[in-house]
Amino acid sequence: MEDAAIINLWKDYSRKLDESLSLNRKNTEDIIHMKVKSMLNSMQPLKVFAIVVGILWVCFVDSLIIGLFHAASIFFLASAIIQVLLTKLAIGIYLYQLILIQQVDISQPVLATQNKLARLQSTTLWVTRILFLQLPVWTTFFWTKNMFTGESIAFNTLPVTVTLLFTLAAIWLFANIRYENRHTKWFKLMFDGKEWTPVMKSMELLDEMKEYK
């Protein structure tokens, strides 16, 4: 009888221990999910601000293009059109990111949340690459045809050189802003903020939760 009683006590203790561990695991998962949601929500104000400023800027530039279409130089129009198209594309990506953040649900499986985080990570890199492509057009909007005729060619070597350097910088950044370079100093300097850090920390938390499980 004593052996049976000890066995029953052991089974009862083992059951309560399993229940306690299961409860602790569930509480840990809930806390991690809430932290992830909180960090992602912290990204929203900056994205909303970027969208509002972007829309105002697009409206301004579009009005300039329409109003000066028959008077402005081809260089100004081409620069403005390229810049505003890239800005519109960036606004679209920011809107998509806001939708992704809203879709993150703490009750969802970890894999579903990780998938959304991966898309946030990827689109953050893409929007940055796209915005840097604007660099050259900020140096060409004031160009005129007269810059490339007669004695003006030598005088305008400097602005052309600046445009070339900006173009090379834009191409280099577009090619090198990749997840594989996240450990480099220039990448960390560029992405240390609300656009990137919350996503990376959220992914790390979910990875830790998977290991814990």
Rank of each mutant, 00 (worst) to 15 (best):
M1N: 08
E2D: 12
E2P: 04
D3K: 06
A5G: 05
A5R: 14
I6A: 14
I7W: 10
L9D: 15
K11R: 12
K11N: 14
K11E: 13
Y13E: 15
Y13F: 14
S14A: 15
L17V: 13
E19A: 04
R25S: 13
T28K: 02
I31G: 05
I32Q: 00
I32S: 00
K35D: 15
N41L: 07
M43C: 00
K47I: 08
K47E: 06
K47H: 07
V48M: 09
I51L: 03
G54T: 00
I55E: 12
L56W: 07
L56G: 06
W57A: 14
V58I: 10
C59Y: 12
F60D: 13
F60A: 13
F60G: 09
F60W: 14
I66M: 05
L68D: 09
F69P: 07
F69G: 04
H70Y: 10
A71Q: 11
A72I: 06
I74S: 14
F76E: 11
L85R: 04
K88D: 08
L89M: 11
L89W: 11
I91V: 02
I91S: 00
Y94T: 03
L95C: 08
Q97M: 11
Q97V: 02
Q97S: 06
Q97R: 10
Q97I: 03
Q97C: 03
L98G: 13
L98E: 11
I101E: 12
Q103Y: 08
V104W: 08
V104C: 10
D105N: 09
D105Y: 01
Q108D: 15
Q108M: 13
V110K: 05
L111M: 12
T113N: 15
T113K: 11
N115C: 07
L117Q: 11
T123E: 09
T123C: 03
R129M: 01
Q134I: 01
V137Q: 09
W138L: 07
T139I: 03
T140A: 06
F141S: 10
F142V: 07
F142E: 09
W143S: 04
T144N: 10
M147E: 10
M147G: 04
F148M: 03
F148W: 13
S152E: 07
A154C: 05
F155W: 08
N156G: 01
T157M: 12
P159K: 01
V160E: 08
F166P: 03
F166T: 01
A169D: 14
I171S: 05
W172L: 01
L173A: 03
L173Y: 08
L173V: 02
F174A: 02
N176M: 01
I177N: 03
E180K: 04
H183V: 00
T184Y: 15
M190Q: 06
W196E: 03
P198F: 02
P198V: 01
V199E: 08
M200N: 07
K201V: 04
E204N: 01
L206C: 02
E208N: 15
E208R: 13
K210M: 15
E211V: 13
Y212E: 14
K213M: 14
K213T: 12
K213F: 13
